[in-house]
Amino acid sequence: MKIAIIDYGAGNIQSIKFAFARLGLKAELTSDVETIKTAEKVIFPGVGEASSAMHKLKQSGLDLIIPELTQPVLGICLGMQLMCEYTEEGDTKGLGIFHTKVKKFNHGVKVPQIGWNQITELKSELYRDIPEKAYIYLVHSFYAPLCKDTIAVSDYGLSYSSALQWRNFYGVQFHPEKSSTVGAKILKNFIDL
């Protein structure tokens, strides 16, 4: 199994590599277009600020490559947000894969949301053997509203998309690599797609 983690200089990816290693899988960190195109599974990570991350993607031309990929792609956290049409963070145009616009939490809750929340209304092979209301770890100030691509819902003063899917593209707002055994199972399910 060839797994590529897209390297565009956005944030800490060491723990994603380790999460795959714990599953007995080797994930390669790469910015090489051919390696990414030919991988069987692609991980699109991201930590940090949206506009500077998008700027880095554009510099390497990956903003045009990612939407054309045909194998399963998993965006994590900021990666998922960048796969949406737009994000309020830094007034940034996204890759336009998921049909929603990312907004800032702004309704009397603490920001960022940090900690363990639950996922419900699970609709995907990604959640095979994962029960409703399973706990996952999140750190984020911006969120994707509910939309037709929603495949998991979390609640933080309002209901929002904690995961999205459109065709071969998947995105999770939470950090599966830090979400204990539940997260490990979700990564395994993604690899088994």
């Binding site: 723990s15 380790f18 714990r22 770890y137 750190v139 204990s180």
Partner: peptide
């Protein structure tokens, strides 16, 4: 830190 990250699956 490296070894903790390698082994531990929580933040």
């Amino acid at each position: 830190v490296y070894h903790v990250a390698e082994k531990v699956n929580i933040p």
